[in-house]
Design a protein around this nucleic acid. Sequence first.
DNA 1: TATGAATGAGAGTTCATTCAT
DNA 2: CATGAATGAACTCTCATTCAT
Lengths: 222, 222, 222, 222
Amino acid sequence: MDKALTKNNGETLSRSALRRQREREERYQTILKAAETLFVKEGYHQTSINKIADLAEVSVGTVYFYFKNKEDLLIQLLDEISYLFRSRIGAEFRNADSTLEGFTNAGNMFFDEFCNKYPEKVAIMYRESVGQSPLVEEHRKKLHDKSIKDISEALQRMSENMGFQFPSSMSIEIIAVSIMGIYQSIASHFLVSREKPENLKQIGDDAVNYLVGGIKDMCGLN
Amino acid sequence: MDKALTKNNGETLSRSALRRQREREERYQTILKAAETLFVKEGYHQTSINKIADLAEVSVGTVYFYFKNKEDLLIQLLDEISYLFRSRIGAEFRNADSTLEGFTNAGNMFFDEFCNKYPEKVAIMYRESVGQSPLVEEHRKKLHDKSIKDISEALQRMSENMGFQFPSSMSIEIIAVSIMGIYQSIASHFLVSREKPENLKQIGDDAVNYLVGGIKDMCGLN
Amino acid sequence: MDKALTKNNGETLSRSALRRQREREERYQTILKAAETLFVKEGYHQTSINKIADLAEVSVGTVYFYFKNKEDLLIQLLDEISYLFRSRIGAEFRNADSTLEGFTNAGNMFFDEFCNKYPEKVAIMYRESVGQSPLVEEHRKKLHDKSIKDISEALQRMSENMGFQFPSSMSIEIIAVSIMGIYQSIASHFLVSREKPENLKQIGDDAVNYLVGGIKDMCGLN
Amino acid sequence: MDKALTKNNGETLSRSALRRQREREERYQTILKAAETLFVKEGYHQTSINKIADLAEVSVGTVYFYFKNKEDLLIQLLDEISYLFRSRIGAEFRNADSTLEGFTNAGNMFFDEFCNKYPEKVAIMYRESVGQSPLVEEHRKKLHDKSIKDISEALQRMSENMGFQFPSSMSIEIIAVSIMGIYQSIASHFLVSREKPENLKQIGDDAVNYLVGGIKDMCGLN
DNA sequence: TATGAATGAGAGTTCATTCAT
DNA sequence: CATGAATGAACTCTCATTCAT
């Protein structure tokens, strides 16, 4: 048995402990993935913990060992998405130098990469996590607000650098919110409610064109 | 008695019949309003038929006399909103002559009027009816698609009249979807998840500015 | 108005009263027929008073004016069937002279006529009214027991007349019960659970042959 | 702990697993027995799942853990009865050599043993499961049809062996159906709707006499 | 850690029956 | 007499969560 052996043998401990650690992490992910799949396919409320346990090939009790409750599953999913979104799309905004290119890059990253690679995460983000509970809404808001902040700061930097003024003090926030709305609407319209289209690239380009055009016009950049 | 009187007096009969008709209609609206209030305040799933019946001051059975089931309540609400949205905002798009003014008017109508007058309907439309069931989704889609069509046609007329070409064949649809996304995002961000702001007018103006700017840029109108 | 006129005019009274009487009777029958149809087609418990009222083209209240409650509808139906059964099949037993011919006649009457003409009544009698409530069971029993009595007396008369003894004191009742069982089983097997067969006549003949054969054997009549 | 021990001791594991298995089976039977009791005493429709859970001393949820729904309880009961009936009475028909004795034995088995030992099962079979739902009816029919087949084959063998012809091609099926009718009618009349009679043996003998007599007569065996 | 049977509050829904008009 | 809207008790069934093993 592990326990007995490891009393005299540090290496065994670490190997065995690592294995356990790894197994734990794998289980956690397996369950989370099962939840994601079912939430997207059947809807959050239509998915029972029993179904999730079945798909993950663990017992109900095990699900509750790894997650506080059903809501927690959705929240963990949302936080994971949040992290992913911010490290891909958000990063582009943050890395943007003071030109419009950053907005184009971010858009391409979202439409071409993110939507293509993680259509289920898009569905969770824009459909399954909407209007479920105050706590879930809080985590949704966190993702939303951080993205707004990323975009706003990029806009701010740009305006400062290029020396122009936005019409009103709220303009920046409003443009940021609008851009997020375009992301959501395009993704929902062309991805969530139908089959994945083959011209997603073209769609993304057009959307980015439009959203960047709005900025250009507002800044007098044309 | 009605019957006796009505033999000589058609009006009396119709009065009584009309009263019944009116009472029915009132009850229907009372229940629907109660459902709307609770759906917005507590969320669709957290609202039980019992609570709705209580608030409407009728029995559970009466709710089921007027509505097929809980889902039906949401659908009726959605259809009502659909009608309202299309007869206010959609109309502006449809009436738009071939300039950008129609887009400004529609935006003002949505942000200044609609959001101000019917904040609960906005919450139903953008939060409570999301991801609930295939049937609900169908009715949501109907509202969405009709609006997309209204906007698309306005864009089409404009491009034809002013003699310019959109970059790709899908550009029109994509702009339309984007505009709907801006509506939703701005309304959700500033209205649904917080108190009604006093500078809603300014917010609407900026949003309209931005979305119109995108069109202008895309069409080379500046 | 009827009432005013009839104060001075006996004839009008009786005409009008008769018409009302007739209308009442017609309504009663219309409702009962609707209930019968639905009970047979959908089952007693799956049939609601609303459905019955709809089919009879009257209001729910009217159903309750003519019948005490839902159970009462079944009981009236059962009593009607009881009367019909006894005036057709029971009569044959009662009219039977002291030979076996009465048994043949009764059987033919049941299988060829009754089952053919009133398949729904057979379904009510043998399926829909079974195990519904103590009161219904009571009325079922009344029909059953009266028929047993009819058959028993026919057997009694026969034995007395032809001078033979049944093995035990209960033999008569047992044969009577058995005959009723054959009626039910054959009718249920060939009629209730499937389409009406075209060779019902042949089936009836065979069944009668068998049930009469049993009597003959028991009495040493061969 | 089981797990530790079982590493060296397969038997311990199996003991514990067997105990669980046994407990599960016991619970299942407890609930089924409670349902049987209540269905017979109060009627299928008057018996709520709550009452069944109460009598079985489990929670409502537990009933639904073991059975799909209320209908399923009745069906399981029916299938159990089906098995019992066929392994007692059906076996007698199937084992019957080519004389009439098999019919006598089967009858005795039914009236003396089955009815005596399982009066509630008789009530379920002949009263509570009648006309409840298409699915229940299907299972009833299965029991019925298999029994008809058992009897028919016994008759067939007999006729072949003793070299006589039945009047019509359907005669065999009709006699089989009639015999089942006699079983049901006698059992219902003397058992289901009243106290268990002390002279059940005599009743059964007479009934068997009668039903066998019918066969004898039809075959010219007297 | 893992299991999965057990729980029971709570949901949606039905429908026989009543009664003011 | 006829109507049909209103009632609300009662039902079946679900499912997140717990806990002894």
